[in-house]
Simulated scan of single mutants.
Amino acid sequence: MSKNIGSIDRIARIIAGLALIALAATGTIGWWGWIGVVPLLTALLSWCPAYTLFGFKTCKLSD
């Protein structure tokens, strides 16, 4: 599993994931906001299965 998410992409995923989780936890957007766990996990792993499937890569370094 090589990295395929760059630093800007990671930051955006972390912010979006935390925002969705926070909104779901406060009941603002309902239960579906817990989907924010997905971008948060992909950012922490620096790997996105969808990017692998479609051959995308936003990072400059390769493992």
Rank of each mutant, 00 (worst) to 15 (best):
S2E: 15
S2D: 15
N4W: 05
N4H: 06
S7H: 10
S7M: 09
I8T: 14
R10A: 07
R10P: 00
R10K: 14
R10S: 08
R10D: 02
R10I: 06
I11T: 11
A12F: 11
I14Y: 04
I15W: 02
A16D: 06
G17H: 03
L18E: 04
L18G: 03
A19R: 03
A19W: 05
I21S: 06
A24E: 06
G27P: 04
G27I: 05
I29R: 02
I29K: 02
W32L: 15
W32R: 12
G33I: 06
G33F: 03
G33C: 09
W34V: 08
I35Q: 04
G36P: 02
G36V: 01
V37Q: 07
V38K: 00
V38N: 01
P39W: 00
L40V: 07
L41N: 03
L41R: 01
T42G: 00
L44W: 12
L44A: 12
S46M: 07
S46K: 05
W47G: 01
C48Y: 03
A50E: 08
A50L: 13
A50K: 08
T52M: 07
L53M: 12
L53I: 13
F54K: 08
F54Y: 13
G55Q: 07
G55D: 13
G55Y: 04
G55T: 05
F56L: 13
T58S: 15
C59I: 10
C59V: 10
C59S: 12
K60P: 09
L61D: 14
S62T: 11
